[in-house]
């Protein structure tokens, strides 16, 4: 479904991505793991169109999308829950979710339907519907960010560090929900520091090091790979 070929990105003189290639098939959970600064976030920011690639192509169902502005990429069905959550802090949970459905403004009833779906995934958000997002706890904000991304009815959902800064027990909940979202038919591209949990839920994984893909395989194989175990699983 998504095909990234030889993607290179630079910030000024610093090369962030060097010829990164990856593929995501329909229905998969694919994870990117790697150290901070390896280029994971840059990759999905480039897919979203927030960063312009220096060279290389990104294709969605065979059509190139790397020249499009971010809002058009969302229209094509790729939505992202960004690193650090980035919820609209002075707006209510309800308004945040409405903004998530910006691309589908025409259909009120289906937006409300989706909101119910998000609330059934995250019952906590239902309780806080009229609360201002900035006053939510970290975990709740993460749920809101994910719910907001789901409101666009994406075919591909990209999650950037969904477990960052959450309490260990919440991390488990979040990963369970990611699996649930996937089972409901959404393809997921997951960027994670927490390689352990990410590989556990993912079908396939890519390992990024200093802007390059150094390994890609089934999640199960990566989990048993010696190099990965040593560098990312701490064993």
């Amino acid at each position: 479904m998504l095909k990234v070929t030889d993607l290179s990105v630079s910030y000024g003189a610093i090369k962030a991505l060097n010829s990164v290639s990856l593929e995501v098939q329909k229905g998969e959970i694919v994870t990117m793991i790697g150290a901070n600064g390896a280029g994971k976030s840059t990759t999905i920011r480039t897919i979203s169109g927030l960063v312009k690639p220096q060279s290389g192509t990104i294709e969605l169902d065979g059509k190139p999308i790397h020249t499009l502005p971010p809002h058009q990429i969302v229209h094509l069905g790729i939505s992202q829950s960004p690193e650090g959550r980035r919820v609209f802090s002075t707006m209510t949970v309800h308004e945040n979710l409405q903004l998530g459905a910006y691309t589908r403004r025409g259909s009120r009833s289906s937006v409300l339907e989706d909101m119910d779906r998000v609330f059934s995934l995250f019952p906590r958000l239902k309780e806080r519907e009229r609360q201002v997002a900035g006053t939510l706890s970290g975990g709740e904000q993460q749920m809101l960010a994910m719910g907001r991304a789901l409101m666009a009815r994406p075919t591909l959902l990209m999650l950037d560090e969904p477990s960052l800064g959450l309490a260990p027990f919440l991390v488990q909940t979040i990963f369970k929900i990611i699996q649930e979202i996937n089972e409901q038919g959404t393809t997921v591209l997951l960027v994670e520091q927490n390689a352990h949990q990410a590989l556990r839920v993912a079908h396939r994984g890519y390992v990024l090091e200093t802007g390059q893909v150094t390994m890609s395989d089934n999640a199960a194989n990566l989990m048993t790979d010696d190099g990965v175990r040593r560098a990312y699983l701490g064993e």
Partner: peptide, 10 residues
Amino acid sequence: AAGMNPQEKL
């Protein structure tokens, strides 16, 4: 240790 891999954490 935020953003470090297990090796760096050690």
